[in-house]
Amino acid sequence: MLSSPRHAPPKRWGEHIATLAVALLSWGSIAILAGIIGFLVYRGGQVLSWEFLTAPMREGMQKGGIAPALVGSLWLTAVAILTAAFISTAAGAYLSEFARPSRFKNLIEFLVTTLAGIPSVVYGLFGLALFVTALGLGASILAGGLTLALLSLPLLIRNAQEAFAAVPRALKEASLGIGASEIQTFFRITLPMALPRILTGLVLASGRVLGETAPILFTVAAYYLPTYPHSLLEPTMALPYHLYVLITSGTNIQATYPMAFGTALVLLLLTLCLTGIAAYLRYRLKKSYRV
C-alpha cells in the first residue's frame, strides 16, 4: 500500500541516467581544460629553457627567446593594474561606503555592469581613438596600459565594492561611535580590513589583463621589435600578440610552431599562476568570513 509491497523501491533508471549525464558533461568540460593545459605543457615544455625566457627572438622569430614580449607584457600589466587600482578602489569605496541610495549611485552601478559587457576589442578602438590618436601618445606602453586599465575597471570596481561591503558593519559603527569621522573610519578600519580582498581582485585582474590581445592590437603591440622599452612612450611586443603573430602571420609558420608552443605555455603559466593564486585566496577568504 505504502510501497510496492515487499520488494526494494524502484530503481528509477531515468534519474540515474540523467545524473550520470550531467556529471559526464561537467567533468567533460573540465577535462577539456585539463586537455589544453596538458597539451601545451607537453608541446611547450620541449621548447622552454632559460634562453627562451631571457633572449630576444632571432632569425625571423624562428629562434631565440621571447624576452622582449615577456618584458613588454609585464610593463603593460603593471601600468594597467596600477592605474586601475586607485580609481577602482576609490569608486568601489564610494559605492559601498559613502553613496546614499540615489539616482547617481544607481546610474554608476548600471554603468559598471554595462561597461563590463563591452567587448575588449571595442576598448581597443576607444584606446586607438583616444590615447593613440587624440592624445597623441602613439602606439605606446602608456596607451596600451591605459586601455587595459579601462577594460579592467568594471571588474575591479565591483570587486572593491564587495570587499568593502564585506567588512562587518559593527566594526565601522564602533569606530564611528568613538568619534572618528567617516573618512577616518574608512582609512583606519574599513580599508585595512578590505585590503586582502581588494588585492585578490587585483591579482585576478592582472591575470586577465596579461592574456588580453584585442585591446593591445592597435594601441601598443609591435609585430617585431626585439628590444626592451626605455620609456612608457615606446611601443613594445607583448606575449599574447606575439603568439598570435607566430601562429597566423609568420613568414614560415611551420618553422615558428615550436616558438608558438613555448610562448603559449609561458603565457598560460603566467595567467594560471595569477588566476590560481587569486582564486585560492578568494575561496580561503570566503571560508574564513563564513565561519
Binding site: L33, L40, T213, L243, A264, T271, Y280, Y283
Partner: peptide, 15 residues
Amino acid sequence: IKMLWEVLAGLPSVV
C-alpha cells in the same frame, strides 16, 4: 570546481 571555473574564465583567449 569554483576554482576551476575561475581558471577557465582566465584562460587567455589567444591560447
